[in-house]
């Protein structure tokens, strides 16, 4: 394999790795995928290192020739459907060895697919909020209040995305608004317990999964990723608590 071909294959593999990370896949899956694709392309010797925000890979072509590429990843949004499609694509690459051009077409297709249908998305927000308000001991009033606030917060989040790209700032304003709406819901009699209404909304934003995954990353040896995710989750949890405290103090 010459250098140009290796560059093309690695470019495709990195595209897939980058999209995987952006969709919330685990780093070991990303390292594994890039390695497998390069192996399937005929490069047995490849080194990949990935953390949540970067991927670096070097393919060894023999005779002191190497190809290296790196990617930077900004922003993660969990998208299981996309992870599944990318996983399927990389399996196809490994079994059928398509050309780089056709791989790139498939990647473009996956990238162009509408990420998440927001017409259904707000239902998800309502369902999560209401369910967990009940789960943690609320009554039917709290269920309704929390679900309604979940929908409002969904649209508030969309509006915030236009205002700022800093996710901590977004979390702060989001949770201040959440706390404020819960107080109003109790005052108007829609809901009964402000704290139980809020816990339903908090489940949407609190990085519980990320926190648990960060410790799993530490267990399986992805130490840097684990530490980064661990600190990010603690910071986010703190910010959310500040947001809800602010609006609690106002009343």
């Amino acid at each position: 394999m010459n250098r140009e071909e290796a560059d093309e294959y690695l470019y495709c593999a990195m595209d897939i790795g980058q999209l995987l990370l952006m969709s919330g896949a685990e780093v070991n899956r990303v390292e594994d995928t890039v390695t497998r694709i390069m192996n399937a392309a005929g490069v047995p010797d490849v080194e990949v290192f990935s953390i949540t925000s970067t991927i670096t890979a070097t393919a060894h072509l023999g005779d002191f020739q190497t190809v290296t590429q790196m990617r930077r990843i900004y922003g993660v949004r969990t998208d299981m459907h996309r992870i599944e499609e990318l996983n399927q694509l990389s399996r196809n690459i490994c079994s059928r060895h398509p050309s780089p051009a056709s791989i790139r077409r498939e990647i473009a297709q996956i990238r162009a697919a509408q990420p998440i249908n927001s017409g259904v998305m707000f239902l998800g927000y309502a369902l999560v909020s209401g369910s967990f308000a009940l789960f943690f001991g609320g009554d039917m009033h709290d269920f309704i209040a929390s679900a309604l606030i979940g929908v409002l917060l969904f649209f508030f989040e969309k509006a915030l995305a236009r205002l700022t790209s800093n996710h901590l700032m977004t979390a702060l304003l989001w949770s201040a608004m959440g706390g404020f709406l819960a107080q109003i819901a109790v005052m108007t009699g829609i809901g009964h317990h402000a704290d139980l209404i809020s816990i339903g909304n908090i489940m949407l934003y609190i990085p519980g999964v990320a926190f648990t995954n960060s410790i799993r990353d530490l267990f399986i040896g992805d130490t840097i990723t684990g530490v980064i995710r661990f600190l990010e989750s603690l910071l986010l949890a703190g910010i959310i608590a500040v947001g809800f405290t602010i609006s609690g103090r106002l009343f």
């Binding site: 299981m80 996983n87 943690f136 816990i199 908090i202 519980g208 926190f211 648990t212 959310i240 405290t245």
Partner: peptide
């Protein structure tokens, strides 16, 4: 024939200690 993460992540959501993570941060601050 799908990645296991999909099912493992969703299945572990009721267990994931999101509420206690929040309550801990909340108590620290208040």
């Amino acid at each position: 024939h799908a990645p296991s993460t999909i099912f493992t992540v969703i299945a572990s959501i009721p267990l994931v200690p999101g509420a206690s993570l929040y309550r801990s941060a909340d108590s620290m601050m208040n």
